[in-house]
Amino acid sequence: MAVLIDPPAWPAHGRLWSHLVSDSSFAELHEFAAANKVPRRGFERDHYDVPADLYDALVTAGAKPVSSRDIVHRLSRAGLRRRKAHAMARREPGAVLLRPRRLQRGDLVAVPATSGVVSAPGLRVGVERLESWGLRVRLDDHVLDRDSRLSYLAAGDDVRAAAFTGAWLDPEASAVIVARGGYGSQRVVDLLDWRRLAEAEPKVLVGFSDATALHQAVAARLGLATVHSHSVTSLGAATTQSAEALRRLLMEPDTVTDLLADRASETVVAGISRGVLVGGNLALLASDVGTPFSRSAAGGIVLLEDTGEAAYRVDRLLTQLLRAGWFAGAKGLVLGAFTGCDDPVELDVVLEDRLAPLGLPMVRHVDVGHTSSSAPMPLGVEAVLDADVGSLMLTRPALV
């Protein structure tokens, strides 16, 4: 077990570079690098890039000189090789995203509160449901906190950011399911160290509503597919059918092909299209435009849902996305539930007036969103929308 370094033979930025690795663990590698003042920003996937002028000092400090071929062999043998195609990294809008591993009985689910104040009874019921699937659950220490100044936030921004970071970097956790929605995730994403998060093993992120900000950020910065579905508290109130659909998607993804199977929908614009699923909560998508975390609908089949928005506000949100060019290059539209909106008839007119002129295959009244019976939707994976028959077929399982 050792820290290894190959000869400085790799040209970049007018200099020659070496690769610094460990054939034991990333923890050993990071500890050695920190002790020798190698900056963390030099880490990429499975190695540090270090300039030639540090080579001798690192060898003196204990790094073992080996060939570049030996570096690759030792990393692969130790199970620490992370190929670029399988690493979390930025990917262009419309690209199929990296799929995390499916969950198995005994896996650990980490639960942070990233948004609004969490109800203890609702959280408890949701946790019991996850445990009934054979999963272990670890709640963040501050999951039931309330911010001392802003009553609608579950703890301060720094506390919630630390909670998400801790959950994502937890080496035992295979999934992060947010405790609830509300508001606050947009205040968190700017505080996260995305380079550090990219060093973790890919894991499943689950949530909806305010978690749309997290879905967008994880897709934009980590290039990782996520799951738009119940938070832990809403899972506790979910119907048996809805909870079972999420369990199957997470634990038996090979059995999930048509995301709209046994679900009603209405054709607005006929046609068939293929694209990568993208979207979520309409208000969050519109308010994300112009930020580094906004991932456009280019090449995508767009999912939209919301709650408590009057028809004119939905009009304003859609108009903002249209004017910003967010829909440019989109392939299809799946309009979910718009619950608690004032006039459903007028709302349908607004949605059709704003979106039908795009000429994309479109279905509406799909049960996805703020309902107890909501269907789970993987984001970042490819699907085929047949608006004529109301099907949304995955081209491969949502999780590996």
Results as ranks from 00 to 15, higher is better:
Ser148Trp: 08
Ala27Glu: 12
Gly299Leu: 07
Gly308Asp: 10
Pro357Asp: 09
Leu249Asp: 05
Leu385Val: 11
Ser132Cys: 12
Leu16Val: 11
Arg274Met: 04
Met1His: 15
Glu346Thr: 14
Ala217Leu: 09
Thr395Asp: 13
Arg196His: 07
Val227Asp: 05
Asp190Met: 00
Phe32Cys: 02
Phe43Tyr: 09
Ile71Ser: 01
Leu385Pro: 00
Tyr312Val: 14
His370Pro: 00
Tyr55Arg: 15
Pro93Gln: 05
Val127Ser: 05
Asp193Leu: 04
Ala330Val: 06
Ser374Gln: 02
Ala173Asp: 02
Asp46Ser: 12
Leu16Tyr: 12
Ala220Gln: 10
Asp367Phe: 08
Leu322Val: 06
Asp193Pro: 13
Leu333Asn: 08
Leu214Lys: 00
Leu284Asn: 07
Phe164Arg: 01
Pro361Asp: 13
Gly300Arg: 04
Gly280Glu: 01
Tyr55Pro: 10
Pro7Gln: 12
Ala261Thr: 10
Leu108Arg: 02
Ala356Asp: 09
Asp254Val: 13
His19Ala: 11
Ala264Glu: 15
Ala110Lys: 05
Asp193Asn: 10
Leu144Tyr: 06
Glu92Lys: 13
Glu28His: 13
Gln320Tyr: 10
Asp353Ile: 09
Gly359Leu: 05
Leu282Tyr: 05
Val118Lys: 10
Asp23Glu: 07
Ala219Met: 11
Gly340Trp: 03
Ser185Phe: 02
Ala217Cys: 05
Tyr152Gln: 13
Glu309Asp: 14
Thr291Arg: 07
Thr307Glu: 11
Val176His: 01
Gly275Arg: 03
Lys37Ala: 11
Val368Cys: 15
Ala154Ser: 15
Val302Lys: 04
Gly166Ser: 08
Arg102Pro: 04
Val117Tyr: 03
Glu44Gln: 15
Leu304Thr: 05
Leu259Val: 11
His86Ser: 11
Val109Arg: 07
Asp140Phe: 05
Thr239Ser: 12
Thr257Lys: 14
Leu246Tyr: 00
Leu246Cys: 00
Asp386Trp: 13
Asp348Tyr: 05
Gly116Ser: 00
Gly359Ala: 14
Gly271Tyr: 07
Asp141Glu: 02
Pro253Arg: 07
Ala324Met: 07
Leu317Thr: 10
Arg99Asp: 04
Arg313Glu: 14
Ser151Met: 03
Pro51Asn: 11
